[in-house]
């Protein structure tokens, strides 16, 4: 695994809409009108229904799990939701290694995390701390 600072993690891409959001609402008990109804989204000031921040949170975890494999552990994730995930937009979760330090268990990486959409809007910005245990 390349832990060089500046290395980009494989991106995670999803085209999002009610098919994703309804499934997530069903498992997270998150039936909020702005996630289910364009009119409710418009009433709240958005152009459409919007996706759950919590689902983007899951997508960030998936991106990290795929990269780090079974020897990795997500120790911390901090994100700010900056813009809403609009219906039928394609969003991409990115990760880039910012810093790496050695520790007793292996290596600890700070990874910059961000989510953007196909209109080049940054939706989410954050940073993760990931422990990579020595094999």
């Amino acid at each position: 695994m390349d832990l060089t600072p500046g290395t980009e993690l494989p991106a995670f891409v999803r085209t999002t809409g009610f098919a994703n959001w309804n499934r997530y609402a069903a498992v997270n008990e998150e039936f909020i009108p702005i996630h289910m109804d364009d009119e409710a989204g418009k009433a709240a000031g958005f152009p459409s229904a919007i996706g759950m921040g919590n689902l983007a949170w899951s997508y960030a975890h998936i991106m990290m799990r795929r990269w780090m494999g079974p020897n990795g552990k997500i120790e911390k994730l901090a994100v700010q939701y900056q813009l809403p995930n609009l219906r039928e937009s394609t969003i991409t979760v990115h990760g880039k290694i910012a810093e790496v330090s050695k520790c007793a268990e292996g290596s600890r990486a700070l990874v910059d995390i961000w989510v953007d959409d196909d209109a080049d809007r940054k939706l989410v910005n954050g940073q993760a701390t990931i422990l990579i245990r020595s094999a």
């Binding site: 709240a44 921040g53 120790e75 901090a78 700010q80």
Partner: peptide, 13 residues
């Protein structure tokens, strides 16, 4: 208040 949106999360595991 009428509306709520998710502003962010900091989570330690």
């Amino acid at each position: 208040v009428m509306f709520v949106v998710n502003g962010g999360t900091v989570c330690e595991y």
